[in-house]
Nucleic acid binder design. Structure first.
Length: 653
DNA sequence: CGATCACGG
DNA sequence: ACGCCGTGATCG
């Protein structure tokens, strides 16, 4: 009775001072000139038309005149909406370049503008800009696309900045069903029942996939695929809009995910400054240490072996050294960290190997790889955020992944010294404290959990007190156990792995869980209800109405069903936390733009935001960030954010 | 290309 | 079977 199904994202329970940033799809800076309706503008200068005709006509196989007429028709009808499909050399928005641009108007007319085909004819860059830039930059011409954040980067670099982004098919499809096939071909097939060019042709023509590089195709060949693909976009947008509305997910798309596209685009464009010198020093030190460890390990092993090979290590540990075997994997005996730690007390080899593993990981993944990701033009690393990356609604980050930079070990976290603010600027970080547990407190309504957060207590300490009935001083070991069980509950952990994690017996773990649910009865109810409702509805749902379909709850095998039940428990928690963070990002971005325009968001790491601001504005930026994060969507428990300032990412914490 | 391992939340 | 969500390096 006390739950809140699918609240309106925009409904703000508490009056907040901040401007409502989510009121409408984000618009970037308005064009300098007053927008002119696209269908009243002259098509192009006579010279430009003539040069294009010359180009097109120079290729016998290429009916340039017809292509130009098609472009004219699309332009004339673009006012009501334009579908855009940049054809690129590959799928990397930062490194790949524009080969051509397919366009479609809402009446179904399509055109293809060849720009960089190996054997043209191509449209000259200056002509392309003259014809296309005004309508692409016109915020009043609504654009439909598939991954508009990527399109924004690619077109911007080609001198064709895009504004008025209205509907993103990839993001919209993700909101409808995060685990379905989001490819344009898949959507055309599954939503519209349309087949894009025959599988053979499509495989050959899809940008950079298959063996054929699209830039080596003739414009006429590329146009076959690109125009049929772009032609499906407006109908798809209509269909997906209707799907979102029927699922009551339109606010989730329109007020959260859509505005986030530009926020993420700005963050990617900003990048973060990397001090390569710091990493170089670390890499050199690690190399020396690794060489030393290798020699030691070879001596202990009685000869050289590949220390990065699991099978070779297993053979040595369990056959040659005859150490007692631990967990099995599909392919043999496991040599992972937990196993090696068990063995470390028996033999020096596994103990040393743990050190080697840590150092080798740091060197290959961070010290060596990160500097290669620096953009030489600005000395900064520009990650790519995947808005459709995780089925729970979380973002993911890649090329490079800046969401898994070491933090837990003192040695690893030193890497964060290499992420720096430019001269006269500061980094400002804001961390949600225990956001997932707060979300669980909110969703479950458990009075014990809520009270702990309302009083501002250390939630693991208060959990330990309730579970163990301790009044006075608390053994730190009990807090650590309570912490494990708090997280374990959110992940659907069973007594077996709990006993493993806590280093206690199975019976003791079962007893522990019994006490936990005695103390937090409404948490138990919440977990059961999550599974039950997901089974009835067919999907798990988050605070803002994000869905994750779980057919295995009803139909799976025992193992699959158990997995689906853990997902049904975890998704509302992890997903709602992701919803809140995304809303906070949109709010922080808008508030900074209005109040501290010198500051810019750089990174998001699930419960943390990092921004950069001139020294003089850093304190204000920190204040704005904290306020927008804490107030973005009030729950039954307060959201707490710890903020920090520093010259490097390490100093921020 | 699947499996394993390790980094983050 | 036994802990959720990712990305990336490496091996075979």
């Amino acid at each position: 009775a006390d739950e809140e199904p699918v609240p309106d994202v925009g409904a703000r329970p508490a009056p907040a001072a901040a401007p409502s940033a989510v009121a409408s799809p984000a618009r970037r800076a308005a064009p300098a000139a007053a927008p002119t309706p696209a269908d009243t503008r002259p098509f192009a200068s006579t010279r430009a038309v003539q040069s294009a005709l010359d180009l097109f006509e120079s290729a016998a196989s290429d009916d340039g005149e017809e292509r130009l007429a098609r472009l004219h028709a699309v332009r004339a009808r673009a006012l009501h909406g334009l579908a855009v499909l940049p054809v690129m050399t590959g799928d990397d928005p930062r490194r790949d370049t524009l080969v051509g641009l397919a366009l479609a108007a809402r009446d179904g007319s399509t055109a293809y503008v060849p720009l960089a085909h190996a054997a043209g004819p191509n449209v000259a860059a200056t002509d392309a800009r003259e014809w296309l830039a005004p309508m692409l930059a016109d915020s009043l011409v609504p654009k439909v696309g598939w991954d508009l954040k990527r399109d924004r980067h690619v077109l911007g670099r080609a001198g064709l900045p895009i504004d008025g982004i209205a509907f993103d098919l990839h993001v919209a499809s993700f909101v409808c069903d995060p685990e379905r096939d989001h490819s344009l071909e898949g959507l055309a097939r599954d939503v519209l029942g349309l087949a894009l060019p025959a599988p053979g042709d499509a495989a050959a023509m899809k940008p950079a996939r298959g063996r054929v590089r699209i830039e080596t195709l003739s414009p006429a060949e590329a146009a076959v695929w690109a125009e049929s693909a772009v032609g499906t976009m407006e109908p798809l947008a209509e269909a997906l809009r209707a799907q979102l509305e029927s699922r009551e997910q339109w606010p989730l798309y329109e007020r959260l995910e859509h505005p986030l596209i530009d926020v993420l685009g700005d963050m990617e464009e900003a990048g973060i400054l990397l001090d390569r010198g710091v990493l170089g020093t670390m890499a050199a030190r690690a190399a020396t240490e690794i060489t030393r460890l290798e020699a030691e390990l070879y001596a202990l092993a009685g000869g050289p072996l590949n220390l990065n090979s699991g099978p070779q290590l297993a053979k040595l540990l369990f056959e040659t050294l005859k150490l007692k075997t631990g967990r099995r994997t599909k392919t043999g005996f496991s040599t992972d960290q937990a196993v090696l730690e068990e063995l470390a007390s028996e033999h020096a080899f596994p103990a040393r190997l743990l050190e080697y593993r840590t150092l080798a990981k740091l060197k290959s993944t961070y010290f060596d790889a990160l500097p290669l990701e620096v953009d030489p033009r600005d000395g900064r690393v520009h990650t790519t955020y995947e808005q459709t990356g995780a089925a729970t609604g979380r973002l993911s980050s890649s090329r490079p992944n800046l969401q898994n930079i070491p933090m837990r070990s003192p040695q690893g976290r030193e890497i964060r010294r290499a992420f720096v603010a430019p001269p006269d600027a500061m980094l400002v970080g804001g961390d949600y404290s225990q956001i997932e547990l707060r979300v669980m407190a909110h969703l479950s309504g458990d009075p014990g959990l809520i009270e702990a957060f309302e009083r501002g207590e250390d939630v693991h300490v208060s959990t330990a007190r309730r579970v163990f009935g301790v009044e006075g001083d608390l053994d730190p070991g009990l807090r650590a156990r309570a912490k494990i069980v708090n997280f374990g509950v959110m992940y659907g952990m069973g007594p077996r792995s709990l006993s493993q994690q806590m280093g206690i017996g199975l019976a003791e773990a079962q007893e522990f869980i019994r006490h936990y649910f005695q103390a937090f009865a409404k948490v138990r109810e919440f977990l059961d209800r999550s599974i039950e409702e997901a089974r009835e509805r067919g999907y798990a749902v988050t605070l803002f109405g994000r869905r994750r379909y779980l057919p295995a709850l009803a139909s799976g095998s025992g193992g699959e069903r158990a997995m689906a039940e853990r997902i049904a428990v975890n998704t509302p928690i992890q997903g709602s936390a992701a919803d809140l963070m995304k809303l906070a990002m949109v709010r922080v971005h808008a508030a900074l733009k209005a109040q501290v325009p010198s500051a810019r968001l750089l990174l998001q790491v699930h419960d943390e935001l990092l921004l950069e601001a001139p020294r003089s504005d850093a304190e204000l930026a920190a204040q704005v960030m904290r306020q927008e994060m804490e107030r973005c969507f009030p729950l039954r428990v307060p959201l707490e954010v710890s903020v920090g300032l520093g010259r490097t990412w390490l100093d921020v914490h």
